[in-house]
Amino acid sequence: MKQLISALALALLFAFSSHLSAQEDLMSMLEDEADANDDSRVYATFKTMKAVNFHTIEMVKKKSLDFRVTHRFGNMGSASGGGVHNIWGLDNSDDIRISFDYGITEDLQVGFGRSKRNELIDANIKYRILAQSAQKTPISLVLLANFGITPKRDLNGFYSKSSSRLNYVHQLIIARKFGERFSLELIPTHVYQNLRIKDNSGIDQHSILALGVAARLKLTQRVALIADYAYIASDYRRSHSSITYQDPLGVGVEIETGGHVFHLTVTNASGIVENNFLLNTTDDWTQGGMKLGFNISRVFNLNFNGKE
């Protein structure tokens, strides 16, 4: 009898407590359910398809065309050709690139561009394999292939074979947005150049591996810091006796002005496209070999099927 009463009392208590908590936790229950249902993609791991020098996992949106002009001034330090007489490099231009990128689908982008450096014409394709999502997928994966050709005049007989004018960049970009403010990506890179130089320091390789890393730290709603760096695993470059090859390192500020993302950067990279700066960066931060850079980008929405 006693047991029965206490059992009933317990049941009573249960009925009551579940009843009460049901009211209090109604909202948090619903929110938990909404969280569990959430399979949306993570937004804005980076704000634009480029960090400082490297590509990010971001792409031009579907049926949009991104026209951009990227500019790198000359070296700032006088030890690297800068100094007061050319206003720390502002009179010079290390590289200028004009490019068009188009989003075919949400996950596929094609682009081409033309750079001042090596007169390089490049065409690239970017494909998203995996997109980080709220619950299921912890990282984003993007494949990038960039094909470059230089139509430069052949003054030194470098390009006796026309295939020597070609080079290729392949990247797997692995990125994650950690919380609301910080994003990080690793960029294992393979560069293939048909032309390889033989000199006193030995012979250059056709295939060169590099590991890039890029990060973004959002400071306010519209301002973020960006940075990227690459370790270039090339014996020829790391042990060259007369040319001091450098790893490219860039830092910058990203300012968003509603539809336009503006970058103000400082980097020692020689060239704007991977095909150039991964192979040819010789400017040294410690010698004032960094240059101011910026980009202007305008995105045109070409989706005319939708409503006006």
């Binding site: 109604l26 909202m27 949306s40 937004y43 949106k61 949009s64």
Partner: peptide
């Protein structure tokens, strides 16, 4: 009680959504 997940709003233009 109503819960509306903000990320559930779908726009015609992806950039606008972002």
């Amino acid at each position: 009680a109503i819960v509306i997940p903000i990320k559930g709003f779908k726009f015609e233009k992806e950039l606008m959504e972002e």
